[in-house]
Design a binder for these strands. Sequence first.
DNA 1: TTACTGGCTGTAATCATTTTA
DNA 2: ATAAAATGATTACAGCCAGTA
Lengths: 172, 172
Amino acid sequence: MDFFNSQTRKNNLKCHKKRLTQDQVRLLEISFNSNNKLDSDRKSQLAQELGLPPRQVAIWYQNKRARWKSQSLEVDYKALQQRLDNAMSDNDRLKLEVERLKEELNKAQEMLLAFNTTTNNYSSISSSCDEVGSSCLQLHDQSKHHLDKELYACLIGDEGHFGHNFFASSMS
Amino acid sequence: MDFFNSQTRKNNLKCHKKRLTQDQVRLLEISFNSNNKLDSDRKSQLAQELGLPPRQVAIWYQNKRARWKSQSLEVDYKALQQRLDNAMSDNDRLKLEVERLKEELNKAQEMLLAFNTTTNNYSSISSSCDEVGSSCLQLHDQSKHHLDKELYACLIGDEGHFGHNFFASSMS
DNA sequence: TTACTGGCTGTAATCATTTTA
DNA sequence: ATAAAATGATTACAGCCAGTA
């Protein structure tokens, strides 16, 4: 139709780009899979075997590399997606675990405080656990006189950071 | 050389593929960005404005869509990679948090056991905390008789699952 | 340095198959 | 159901760049 415009009239004489035969493609694929680069020896050899100009073989390799690259990008994309899914479900599990541990720790701390008050003849054991939980930091300063020396040491922990984290954990 | 082989004699006479001018590309890009599809009205109009055959405009759009697709795949890939990085660092933080909480919980449990043995006039308070920590599961069965009823209830927890997890947490 | 070789990217064009109006 | 348009896969080329003889 409009094949004879000023810009395109040159190539309407069909540049039939004949497709390669299946056999040719097959051989090229095999060769490519063993090595996606093409030294000139291999190029000549393949050109011979295929009945194609070496130039065309080189171009085929060129295009194949490009295709292969975008293909592998897609494969990588799917793999990455899988890894992300795994990481996210790990994340969910860990978050639940953290919540559970915080609850348990909270209970343990409440119990400790209860123990402490009872063993020191405090009548305030009935104070709600929630209040105690959120005022643990103060216990560090206010209640230590009432703890057995040995147990206090255990509460504070052997590591320097433990005493800090121990009471702060349920609020972060 | 062998440009006249049966398979390739056709296209060696240069099918000059002229590149479009910058202005032409610019206009095409603008048009494409507003709509990556091309109805025939727009095609004719663009062909007119560009001095190109409508056929070539259509081809440009087709190729552009293909390019755009693989480009956006790469963009998506990077975005996905970013999300994975974030998820993995979240993961690392959560794992540390879990470890920390387990340690604290372990210490709290050891303390509870120590408290329990002392308040029940046991002389075995000197038994090492490490041993106690790793035998918590047994405490559930063996020591419950020595815990105050109230405190035992707290240890076991109000929720059905708590009693189980409480002692198993430091070994999973 | 220069000139050559080969690879890569981007673009154009065609062909075959699928979708759609 | 069918002709046109979209799409996917190929073939081909030009321009740029790096290594190198």
